[in-house]
Design a protein around this nucleic acid. Structure first.
Length: 550
RNA sequence: UGGGCCAUGGCCAAGUGGUUAAGGCACCGGACUUUGACUCCGGGAUCGAUAGUUCGACUCUAUCUGGCCCAGCCA
């Protein structure tokens, strides 16, 4: 990844820490829980952590925060690694929180010995009651004053499987009256007999996030632990753990605002619901803003990086419109993607005065703005397909820059054609448009005696390839109405499948990206087979053409 | 309601006492054009509110209003 200069409050903090000599370099980490795949929101955390480390002489770790075996799965570990690598954020080390379970256990023992933790026999229900609420202080557990020796033995027995799941927990002794709920003697270990993908059945007690995370950071020598705003309230606890567990290295947690995309489903639980109910094709459905979905759709990773960097790192958390990302996608594809003609909704155009069996091959540049992409030959004959929306019987106004009866347009790269008549079927649908061409107007001939009424593209009707083209619309309708669960407002037409034609000579490979002239950017989907080429619309071209409300 | 955080044009976002208040997206004009694309030109905010401090405030203080987060043996 090309490093970008960034300027925001976290960058400033890191620079000050380096100037003051507190740290020589920045070491950061991205700590996903492997309970689902990542989305655009995570890209901010990944890119920020990565960029801050790289810009300050340090490195970036990928650490799976796998302290809750009942929710986690190895399959997500692989998927997440793939997503991060795709973004170009190389990690220095790949770690698992579960690799530190023994050290965490030892530190817990230390906490008990220092009189800073105790084993609580209260039920989950009672713990909740004792905790109080936002306005009422909590009450201390009746078990808080056990002796150090008793706590030690109890905790060791917890670890050794003497007690049932849920029957006991280890809690930090902090302050039941704290206005910060996180400080009301937080639970730091629970008993949970579950198979862990990494540690198997070795443990029946698992550390809680608030206890595990600071230890993980300290073990790895993380200097700046960057996370999102909702953890601000956890920071005092984070610091408490680092202090009383007597960690040698002191990491500092700093929070930034989450990235929220307008009208998009985020949250692993919600995404999982869409996937499991088969509302979408999978975690990598192009309508999702999962990184895998964006990858499958054809979004270049560089566009995501640029988008994230352009957003900065604010503490505000307003919804960002997807249009902004779209523009970065276009910027990246503008000169890099070859341009080609495709007709999604074909209408046959017959050139009456063109010889019946003649086929000529016209030389066409692959990208006017990037000559390095070379040229290709496209066939042209008496029969071609044009986009149905490029023809109208009667030119409605001077703004109409396409074909109409009596009107002449340029078939891009070929000739000017003038529409003369149409054929309709019984339903009144136009099935053919008949036109005549003017040989003198051939592209490249320098003809300039008159101007056409516009330029439209075509695909030859006798020499072409068929293609399935997938267009994507909003997955959720009326997203803002929070009273209705999103699962009940799925857009039935969020996936539109077109069966159209692409150029005869087009060679496609899964993942390739193209611009379909006058239409948009498309990529070759993984569903493509020998007999069925499938394209995904990545993003449409911008258009100032407004269809008159009919 | 106790605590924490946030508040700049339709959206995102620079700005940390003195600027005509950057920029991007979107939108609206116009030029150019073998993509109604691209490119180029032009268009709009007094900074949540109020009261202070100050020669001077988007930037400092107070109060208010609005939004987000916290009462999992999730992360």
């Amino acid at each position: 990844m090309i490093l970008m200069k960034v300027s925001h409050f976290i960058n400033t903090i890191i620079e000050e820490d380096i100037e003051s000599g507190k740290h020589k370099r920045a070491i950061t980490r991205f700590p996903p829980e492997p309970n689902g795949l990542l989305h655009l929101g995570h890209a901010r955390a990944i890119i920020t952590n990565y960029t801050m480390a790289k810009n300050h002489g340090g490195y970036f770790n990928l650490r799976f925060d796998d302290t809750n075996p009942v929710k986690e799965d190895i399959s997500f570990v692989e998927g997440i690694k793939e997503d991060i690598a795709w973004l170009g954020c190389e990690w220095e080390n790949l770690f698992f929180a579960s690799d530190y379970f023994n050290e965490m256990y030892q530190r817990a023992l230390l906490l008990i010995k220092r009189g800073k933790a105790f084993v609580d026999d209260l039920s989950a229900e009672d713990i909740k009651k004792y905790r109080g609420n936002l306005t009422t202080p909590g009450k201390e557990s009746p078990y808080k004053n056990r002796s150090i020796e008793e706590n030690l033995q109890l905790f060791i027995d917890m670890k050794n499987g003497v007690y049932l799941d849920g029957s006991k927990v280890l809690r930090a002794k902090i302050d039941m009256t704290s206005p910060n709920m996180n400080m009301r003697d937080p639970i730091i270990y629970r008993i949970q007999r579950a198979h862990h993908y990494n540690t198997g059945d070795e443990w029946c007690i698992y550390p809680m996030y608030d206890y595990a995370h600071p230890i993980e950071d300290a073990i790895e020598g993380i200097t700046h632990s960057l996370c999102s705003l909702e953890f601000e309230d956890h920071r005092p606890l984070y610091d408490w753990v680092v202090k009383y567990c007597e960690m040698e290295k002191i990491p500092r947690q700093i929070e930034f605002g989450r990235l929220i995309m307008a009208n998009k489903v985020t949250g692993k639980r919600n995404l999982k619901q869409l996937v499991e109910n088969n509302v979408v094709m999978g975690w990598d459905d192009p309508r999702l803003i999962t990184l895998s979905g964006q990858r499958r759709r054809g979004v270049p990773p560089e566009a995501i990086v640029d988008f994230i960097n352009a957003l900065g790192l604010p503490k505000t958390q307003g919804p960002t419109e997807i249009d902004m990302l779209d523009q970065f996608v276009r910027d990246h594809l503008k000169t890099s993607a070859p341009r080609t003609n495709a007709v999604l909704d074909p209408l046959k155009l017959i050139v009456d005065n063109y010889p019946e069996d003649k086929v000529e091959y016209l030389e066409v540049e692959n990208n006017r703005e990037n000559e390095a992409l070379g040229t290709r030959k496209i066939p042209f004959s008496k029969y071609v397909y044009i986009e149905r929306e490029d023809f109208i019987e009667v030119k409605p106004n001077k703004k109409w820059k396409r074909l109409a009866l009596g009107i002449e347009v340029r078939l891009m790269h070929a000739y000017f054609v003038k529409a003369n008549s149409i054929v309709k079927n019984e339903q009144g649908v136009i099935t053919e448009v008949h036109c005549t061409y003017d040989e003198a107007t051939k592209s490249g001939s320098g003809f300039n005696e008159r101007k056409p009424n516009g330029n439209i593209h075509f695909v030859d009707a006798t020499h072409n390839q068929k293609a399935e083209i997938r267009l994507f619309e909003d997955l959720i309708l009326d997203f803002k109405d929070k009273d209705i669960p999103f699962i009940e407002k799925i857009n039935p037409d969020s996936l539109i499948i077109k069966h159209g034609f692409i150029e005869e000579g087009m060679k496609v490979k899964k993942g390739d990206r193209f611009q379909f002239t006058r239409n948009g950017y498309y990529s070759v989907d993984k569903d493509t087979t020998k007999d069925n080429i499938v394209f995904n619309r990545i993003v449409s071209l911008r258009s100032s053409f407004k269809k008159k409300a009919v």
